[in-house]
Design a protein around this nucleic acid. Structure first.
Lengths: 218, 218
DNA sequence: GTCTATAATTCGATAGAC
DNA sequence: GTCTATCGAATTATAGAC
């Protein structure tokens, strides 16, 4: 790795948040530029997908020169990799009754999608770009899978019935198919009846579906 | 449109073609070429999406010159419009008990997706190309909506309970969100646990979900 | 009908002045 | 650190020879 990739002298003793403004540390101009590029990149990738989101357009949005994007991120591919970092921030819903876990999951995903367009950018790009699709599979493996595994245990112990009829990985897969289908029809394809439903309606209707997949019993 | 687009006896004009005197006009060589172009276009659009599927690559697959694609279809946009014609062939499932309509719908969509890649091409392209997204909304309005409306009536009369709590258009929207989410995770993102399930498992697990959306009752 | 040649853009990426 | 200028490759689309 190049020594200037992340700045060898970056963040002496402060938190790991590179965007946080710490009055003690004199803000470097390059940090603001990096953040502006990343913000513009996320917007463009979310709106246009990987191919149509050009470095030139991203630079224009960030009010800088296109060559700066290359200087900071090396290539378009690495810029996308940096812009596609995404944390689902899945909580453990510890204060909720187990019967409401499905509805809570639907609500949480709706909130995350509307407050951070990174996931929509990944969804759009993942449809045509193999690297973006790979990133989505990685997010599934690192974040969705483990979270569903934990929630499935809680839902299972509080619900009567025999053993689950489905391995927990496949339960996570079914849940993902419904939640990503919601994101696709609501935010990408803009299917009118799905766009027209509000948060509460979607939680009410998709919640039981997710709950059933979570239990893994017919 | 151009008068020579489909003109059966196109005026030769300045053309010095002495062999054109064939009033019968039997099979024309151009028909086979048109079909080959369309077949190659569907494959490329399905595999690469709209932007990455180039006219050059489509022409190579069809074993003809790139300029022929332009000659026959005018532009890349119109080629896509021609290649994206898709008939879901939704039957009325008249010989099935109303309780099995959800499972029958899942099975039918799986069959159509696997025997005709046009729908996958539309899904990939619709993620980034606005015209392709519009085409998907049109397919929903022209084919999915009316079919669900008819099936919802059948499912409703044979099932006890009060009035549906959801307008039929929104029921069709929820069904589409689950079915397109299945196509997305299984054929585009290639999410391992979803790819690993076979047809019967998917029908068993998604069938009840579609059935509940079809009834429109919690 | 088919193909060669090329026009007209647009893109990612690089070199170098200041 | 930032910008100007430009390269080389790839694309859609067109013009015209055979």
């Amino acid at each position: 790795m190049s020594p200037r990739d992340q700045g060898a002298v970056a963040a002496p003793g402060v938190g790991s948040d590179p965007v946080a403004a710490d009055p003690a540390v004199p803000p470097r101009r390059s940090d603001a530029t990096r953040a502006a590029i990343l913000r513009a990149a996320r917007e463009r990738f979310a709106a246009d997908g990987y191919d149509r989101a050009t470095i030139r357009a991203i630079a224009t949005d960030a009010a800088i020169d296109p060559s700066m994007v290359m200087r900071y991120y090396g290539s378009k591919e690495r810029l996308f990799a940096a812009a596609a970092e995404f944390d689902l921030r899945l909580p453990d819903f510890g204060d909720l009754p187990a019967e409401g876990l499905g509805a809570a999951l639907v609500g949480h995903f709706l909130d995350r999608w509307e407050e951070d367009e990174t996931m929509i950018a990944l969804l759009r790009a993942g449809a045509t770009n193999p690297a973006a699709a790979q990133r989505m599979r990685q997010i599934f493996a690192d974040q969705v899978g483990p979270a569903i595994r934990a929630l499935a245990v809680r839902a299972g112990v509080s619900s009567p019935g025999g053993e689950p009829a489905l391995p927990v990985e496949q339960r996570a897969g079914l849940i993902t198919s419904q939640l990503l289908g919601l994101a696709l029809t609501r935010y990408v394809l803009l299917l009118p009846p799905v766009v027209g439903m509000d948060r509460a309606e979607l939680v009410d209707w998709l919640g039981p579906t997710i709950q059933r997949y979570l239990l893994g019993r017919p």
